[in-house]
Write a protein that binds this DNA or RNA. Structure first.
Lengths: 230, 230
DNA sequence: CGACCATTTGATATGGATCAAGCGATGTGG
DNA sequence: CCACATCGCTTGATCCATATCAAATGGTCG
């Protein structure tokens, strides 16, 4: 049998009070700018569910602050995390009418909630919007394809790859502030917490990283990490 | 270290003579009908490369007969098969400008080759076409997401899941004619040939399937297979 | 301070990989 | 038509990476 995931039974308080204060305009990514205008700001507390698997996908979301995880639970309790979404990322966009994964706030999270029907209406008239939707789905596809490649690698390769990915995305140079727990990382990488922890220790001993505190990791030797990323 | 994939060194003759004979009209799936009109029939011999990873994605393809695999090779030679494409399936459709995977004919294959620029031009004027492209990408995304779930399961679950999937797709009732080798299956499931072979034997001993010949498998107990699919 | 998590570390078990034969099929040349 | 290579697959023996089980450590909050 494989990893039995302990679903954290944290506080599931949902501070869903739709705050009315104006959001600071987020840099107009390739995605967005127009789409964002449709968004209503909303907040979720740590571990709050944003939507569940198989629920109607009436909304999509853009992360303003905080981190979101999407995941599926297998019948026997194993959890697979599909992705982590950081500020600027869009999630919950579906082509079909239901969400394929569940989504939860990892930290306190602020998002823009965007009505799908509104976007679709826009897309029906504006080709550029339609193109953006397709591009977003395509980008997601690429991400998932890369994730598959991760899952056939050794533990060391997975962890090294994960750190490099996170370093690129949070762009704090070589210092990475991890918003997610070891359990989250493990469920993303298809490993156990123990293996993730041990692998980090190995990488530290190999002088590839340092771990001043468990959520704070410094890449000391990117070349080495890249090399073992295979 | 993980599985070292022996890339079969088969005959790579490429019977790419663009046959001019009219194709029998394929049932107008959700995808296609209009798109297909743009297609030029083309054939590839067993193991012929259809396109390579990172090549410009100037064409997409619809399988008329035979089976296609897409794959990536990791630096150390490990191969991951991304998907198998059967008659009726469309592959090689990219949102970006390059192919993310390589594609090869598993058997002798006939495809319709469709110029991407032509489809894009159509899509620019016809919303329905644009919608179809998006839908195709979305469907592919779902497929890859399911593939991820496969990869975190036990060998038995992976093989059972694979058999059920194939049975659904080739729709020969409970009799499945596998077009691909054990190595292909292994590289799709993230296992070794030996493990795939042993697992099939187990399933046979458990009376879940029978294997009259190595490429021909009969599902004897779908319920059992579904149950162990987790 | 003490309870509670999250994380690390240690000891052991095990599923699947690896290494190595054996076994049919299929095909080829004598 | 048969001996014999070749290829794809199966089976067996052993090994090892990662899971599992268990305990210690450390940070956080009341």
């Amino acid at each position: 049998m494989l990893a039995q995931t302990a679903i954290q039974s944290g506080s599931f308080r949902q501070t869903s009070g739709r705050s009315l204060r104006t959001e600071t305009p987020v840099r107009p990514h390739l995605c967005g700018s127009t789409i964002e205008l449709l968004g209503a700001p909303m907040s979720f507390g740590r571990n709050a569910e944003i939507y569940g698997e198989n629920e109607p996908a009436d909304y999509l979301y853009k992360v303003v602050s905080g981190t979101v995880r999407t995941y599926k639970i297998l019948s026997d309790g194993r959890r697979q995390i599909g992705a982590f979404y950081l500020p600027g990322d869009i999630f919950g966009l579906e082509v079909e009418d239901e969400h394929a994964f569940s989504a939860e706030a990892i930290t306190d999270v602020r998002v823009l909630v965007i009505k799908r029907s509104a976007v679709m209406a826009l897309a029906a008239r504006d080709h550029d919007i339609a193109r953006q939707l397709w591009t977003l789905t395509g980008r997601e596809l690429h991400r998932v394809q890369d994730h598959i490649l991760l899952l056939i690698k050794t533990a060391q390769e997975r962890v090294a790859g994960f750190l490099l990915e996170m370093a690129d995305r949070v762009s704090g140079g070589n210092a990475v502030e991890l918003p997610m727990s070891r359990q989250d990382i493990a469920d993303y990488l298809g490993l156990t917490i123990e293996t993730v922890s041990r692998t980090l220790t190995q990488l530290e001993n190999a002088a590839a990283i340092s771990v001043p505190s468990s959520r704070h990791i410094v890449l000391r030797n990117r070349a080495a990490l890249t090399r073992m990323n295979a």
